[in-house]
Design a protein around this nucleic acid. Structure first.
Lengths: 220, 220
DNA sequence: ATTTTCATGTGAAATGGTTCACAAGAAATT
DNA sequence: AATTTCTTGTGAACCATTTCACATGAAAAT
């Protein structure tokens, strides 16, 4: 008995990012009291084309009404579902330095359903300290505590020199996705998702743009 | 007398990001004692194809030696020049909250030649306080102080509700590029470069990936 | 009820980005 | 000096993404 895969078309990274943008804009439209919105209006707010908006959505179904547009609440719920943010995700932060401790208090995460439930460090001076109500745990207990809390994602904010070790630990503990802030190319097995957040890279892009008078088609 | 533009080909955002990656890897290769490197080796380290590496570089000139590869020091210098990071950039941070104050101490910025020289806030309790040797200035003095120091880029880490006002001020003060952390679509005139850093979006991507068992071609 | 207006959903076309494949040229080897 | 080995640089081919353009269908207006 062969279990058929549902012939999933490959969705581009850009489409998924735009879904995030639509989601955020739909939240705003809700607050502004809109009941429906057209692909045109949605596109205007993101500096995209209406066709782009419609095409993005069409990969996942047809959610609009011809002649009318999309129901704001409904579309938001639908995109939330697609993105998998129609629930709470529990996260841990590994490395409670500058960036790590800033992210503990980052409102935008909780607002989107990402809740930081555990903090880890290897520095004895930090272990036991309290950040926004969370006690920093010893990295040695990672395995046990990740399993206990059912944590599926972690944020890595340790120095580049130790990042790979932390990732190995975290992978062993069964984590499914990692957001990495260390400026290094990490290795993860194919069943673990990795994203790199590289803030210097963004500044370098700006530097390039100024120096070269760059006019990209569609910049972040 | 018409001033001819040098028919600059449009470089893609991805190419520029990859240049940043090459730059970082070349720094590492320097430390490891390599004198030359092939496109193949460079590609392996970034999980790219050798053709991609060569094509990226070819947009800017030909820097290698056939049969031998690229001189590590030379190529690094060349890419540094292209990216415009062969010099110091002076930056200010607007909004000294969680994220803002974390970035003041962010080593990776200074390492790449981005030096934070001014901090601004509108909160009287923060103004005058010392972060890593820098005194937080009143946002009211933005214009004067930006001009004084010749600051060309700023990082915006204020709440979304006030971000547009800050951007307007900063643009008026003559800033050329903005790295924005507020989760909102900002408006800037066409001669000002804007990049948005949206960390929730990265988590949402991971959420999508887990839920949909996503296998993108080439993920960040 | 009929017509007009509007905006979706989607194949097809156009554009943009990546990979292939190979000629060219430099260094190493015979 | 000639040959072999290696790796670059780049048009051409390929693949992915975006935009176009229009048939379709729902709502509003007559």
């Amino acid at each position: 008995m062969s279990s058929e895969q549902p012939a999933k078309k490959r969705i581009s990274e850009s489409t998924i990012h735009r879904l995030s943008m639509y989601y955020r804009t739909l939240s705003l439209l809700q607050k502004e009291g809109y009941e429906t919105v057209s692909s045109k209006e949605l596109a205007n707010r993101e500096k995209l084309t209406p066709a782009q908006v419609r095409k993005d959505l069409s990969f996942f179904g047809s959610f609009g009404t011809r002649g009318l547009g999309y129901d704001v609440n409904e579309l938001k719920a639908k995109i939330g579902e697609i993105l998998g943010i129609d629930r709470q995700w529990k996260l841990a932060i590994i490395g409670i330095g500058n960036i790590g401790s800033a992210l503990v208090n980052y409102k935008e995460f909780s607002r989107q359903g990402f809740s930081i439930v555990k903090l880890f460090d290897n520095d004895q001076r930090k272990i036991g300290s309290n950040h926004k109500g969370i006690i920093v745990s010893d990295i040695k207990n990672l395995d046990k505590e990740i399993a206990e809390d059912g944590i599926e994602m972690v944020i890595i904010t340790v120095p580049a020199t130790v990042a790979q070790y932390m990732v190995d630990d975290v992978v062993r503990a069964g984590v499914k996705a990692i957001l990495n802030f260390a400026p290094i190319n990490l290795k993860v097995p194919p069943n673990v998702y990795l994203r790199n957040e590289n803030m210097s890279m963004e500044l370098e892009y700006l530097s390039f743009a100024i120096v070269n008078n760059h006019t990209p088609k569609n910049s972040k």
